[in-house]
């Protein structure tokens, strides 16, 4: 099976984010860039599907959009076990307009003709939650989003589980299709030393899509740290003394009981 994984390079979730002077972007100084964690779930699942189908079978391709630096993230994916990478090189790409990016990705995916496309449910930078699903629409393929369990009763027929409010949905689908990965789908592996060495020799192809990057449908007006929320009153002492005080305040002051 040929599996294509869409990947975005994002600031580490551990990074302290500072808004840049112009108030429209983040300051990239000292911010470590990583493979979007949800895309790592997608890649891990792709590798497991390939491995389950036997030695020498199938291929896992990693596709990304962005500047030259994104090749570092693609290389990390190759070290985990992906076979090759494709970069739609765009130095100006900021990634705020999910639908525009989805159109570009879909255009490249058509040329690769994969059986299955896996994406993370969202990127942890702009948190739009839309690219994978929009890719499916542009390809005219079915999609299943927020998947935390994926099984293969038949070679090209899958059964996915996704979380919904108050329960789970079980979904059956055939290929080709797009699946977006939720936390819990798997535990991504660490790259082995051998994998890191092999990754250096794996190809990363630069491509130019046949469609121009569309005009952004969404622009960033401003960015700011979240609104301050000062600490309130703090109580220390015997529970029998302080708890009734707090409960009284919840009733009379906050009026939430």
């Amino acid at each position: 099976m040929k599996i294509l994984v869409c990947m975005k390079q994002v600031p580490s979730s551990e990074a302290r984010i500072v808004v840049a002077g112009d108030g429209k972007a983040i300051d990239p100084t000292d911010v470590e860039m990583i493979v979007n964690p949800y895309d790592e779930y997608a890649l891990e699942e792709a590798l497991r599907i390939k491995e389950a189908r036997g030695e020498g079978e199938g291929e896992v391709i990693v596709l990304s959009v962005g500047p030259e630096k994104v090749k570092e993230a693609i290389r990390s994916c190759l070290a985990m076990g992906a076979d090759r990478g494709i970069l739609v090189k765009d130095d100006a790409y900021l990634g705020g307009d999910g639908l525009g990016v989805a159109r570009i990705l879909a255009d490249v995916i058509r040329t690769q003709e994969p059986d299955l496309v896996l994406c993370g449910k969202l990127s942890i930078d702009v948190e739009n939650n839309c690219v994978g699903i929009a890719v499916a629409e542009f390809l005219g393929w079915p999609h299943v989003s927020l998947v935390n369990k994926l099984e293969w009763p038949e070679e090209k027929n899958a059964k996915a589980t996704r979380e919904i409010e108050g329960g789970r949905e079980v979904i059956e689908f055939g290929l080709p299709a797009v699946v977006t990965a939720e936390k819990g789908l798997n535990e991504p592996r660490y790259a082995s030393l051998k994998g890191i060495m092999q990754a250096k020799r794996k190809p990363i192809e630069e491509v130019t899509p046949s469609v121009a990057m569309p005009a952004a449908g969404v622009e960033i007006v401003s960015m700011a740290p979240p609104p301050e929320r000062g600490g309130g009153q703090k109580f220390e002492g015997e529970p029998e003394d302080v708890v009734p005080q707090v409960v009284t305040l919840l009733k009379t002051e906050a009026k939430v009981l």
Binding site: S13, R16, I17, G96, D125, E127, V221, M223, A224, P226
Partner: peptide, 20 residues
């Protein structure tokens, strides 16, 4: 149409505007 949304794991609140 202009919205406030969370970005970067809630470390940033962004104002975003639809261009059309």
């Amino acid at each position: 149409f202009e919205a406030t949304k969370s970005m970067y794991g809630g470390q940033v609140f962004a104002k975003v505007r639809a261009t059309g």
